[in-house]
Nucleic acid binder design. Structure first.
Length: 421
DNA sequence: TCTGGGGTCCTAGGACCC
DNA sequence: TCTGGGGTCCTAGGACCC
């Protein structure tokens, strides 16, 4: 049996932990640059806010209902996530951290004990220790655990914990196809046209039929609803295959200087991540484009890909290639809204070396990166950086309503919570 | 004026090989 | 006039997830 623990309205809940007076009020959290809605409290869901809604279209509604708006604060959410996961691990060593706010738990290790009771205990502990409310679903497969979780969230009387037992039909009938894990917007639309409304209906279709009309993943999803395991429990995360760094600009960028600084900054961040995970990359892709929404400004979209002679995670090597690729594609007179880089064909470092690169060069680069990382770790991100990333802060974000980094910055520790001095 | 930032997997079709 | 049968690899695009 598996359990899926999923934090309720995670980002909104994190904001509430340190601002308890937000309890009961509609809260929304915005994307980078305060662009659109990425998380909502229960109250703001009821007001009709949707994930992805651009905030400038909702100004009136925000004002009318006194909606509390927060900029995203990923340092805080990341740290709160770590606390939740740590607490979960006290209850079972077999945990698959599935996302920032979700974890699958293998329950078979709890032999003899009542799964539901144990999960209720865990839920209460997480709430008491971290302040984050979670919902928990229990089922024979990951897809069923997900479904039970959905049920627990929708039905208050479950107390946040639901289990799909031997006779799942009743619960399956209450869940719409679009709410099944793995069935998204397009597929649920097609399924509804085929007369399939609920998870129960999907179970009635022949697997071969599903495979033909959709694909093998959809078929596996349906079979998981029958209790057949097709999606493996993965305790240690698979090695990543790609790495992307991209961001919209707070203000449109028109000069090569600014564009190149943005690209170099993305490379810096991606290469750091690569070294942090002891990976190297063989292929680099850069891209930048103008606004996808503007009807008045001319559009331009550019991308280019290059293969390194030998896989690398050395910042300056990648910056050099990235700028060499990007420069001929840049066109004057366009308002660029977004730029980014992709690192592809990642491997764990033992890749073949280049015949024409000298040993000394490699050793020097490696030492330089080690020093760079050490200084930036101890003295703060960006303390030491390449000149090509610039000094003008093209990359800085518009975040007008950001809460303090309560748990990860000494300067921002909460000093007065719940009336305690 | 203002619309996020990451990931994964599958499939079809084209290019190539014999 | 008539045009096989078997592969592999790569890429773009589209679906899904958070």
């Amino acid at each position: 049996m598996y359990a899926l623990a999923d934090c309720n309205n995670f980002y909104a809940s994190c904001e509430r932990v340190f601002e308890p007076n937000l309890e009961g009020k509609p809260v929304i959290v915005l994307s980078n640059n305060d662009g659109c809605v990425i998380a909502r409290s229960e109250e703001s869901k009821k007001l009709g806010f949707k994930v992805g809604d651009p905030i400038f279209k909702l100004k009136d509604c925000v004002r009318k209902h006194n909606v509390i708006v927060r900029s995203s604060n990923f340092a805080l959410y990341g740290d709160m996530s770590r606390r939740v996961m740590q607490t979960i691990r006290l209850f079972s060593p077999d945990v698959e951290v599935y996302s920032i706010d979700e974890a699958f738990i293998q329950l078979d290790g709890l032999h003899g004990r009542n799964y539901e009771e144990e999960m209720r205990r865990m839920r209460a502990t997480i709430l008491r220790w971290t302040g984050i409310p979670v919902s928990i679903g229990i089922g024979k497969t990951k897809t069923l655990a997900k479904l039970a979780n959905h049920y627990a969230k929708k039905n208050i009387e479950t107390g946040g914990v639901a289990k799909i037992g031997e006779h799942p039909d009743e619960m399956l009938k209450t869940v719409e196809v679009g709410d099944i894990w793995g069935i998204g917007r397009q597929w649920s639309k097609k399924l509804r046209n085929m007369g399939v409304q609920t998870a129960f209906d999907l179970c009635q279709l022949a697997p071969d039929n599903i495979r033909q009309s959709f694909n093998i993943v959809a078929m596996k999803t349906a079979m998981e609803l029958h209790g057949q395991k097709h999606f493996a429990f993965e305790q240690s995360p698979e090695q990543r295959k790609t790495l992307l760094r991209s961001r919209s600009f707070a203000n449109p960028v028109t000069s090569w200087q600014e564009l190149s600084e943005a690209i170099a900054s993305h490379v810096t961040s991606a290469a750091e991540k690569l070294r942090n995970e002891s990976l190297v990359s063989k292929v680099l892709r850069i891209f930048f484009h103008t606004s996808l929404f503007s009807h008045t400004d001319p559009h331009h979209s550019a991308h280019a890909t290059v293969e390194f002679t030998s896989s690398t995670n050395v910042t300056h090597t990648i910056i050099k290639e990235a700028l060499r690729l990007a420069e001929p594609l840049y066109k004057k007179g366009f308002k660029y809204k977004r730029a980014g880089i992709y690192l592809l064909e990642l491997s764990s470092g033992s890749a073949q070396k280049c015949l024409f690169e000298t040993q000394e060069e490699q050793v020097r680069d490696k030492q330089m990166m080690t020093v760079l990382d050490a200084i930036n770790t101890s003295m703060g991100k960006g303390t030491l950086h390449f000149a090509s990333t610039g000094f003008t802060k093209v990359m800085s974000m518009r975040q007008l309503q950001k809460s303090p980094q309560y748990t990860t910055h000494w300067d921002e520790l909460p000093t007065c919570v719940c009336g305690l001095q």
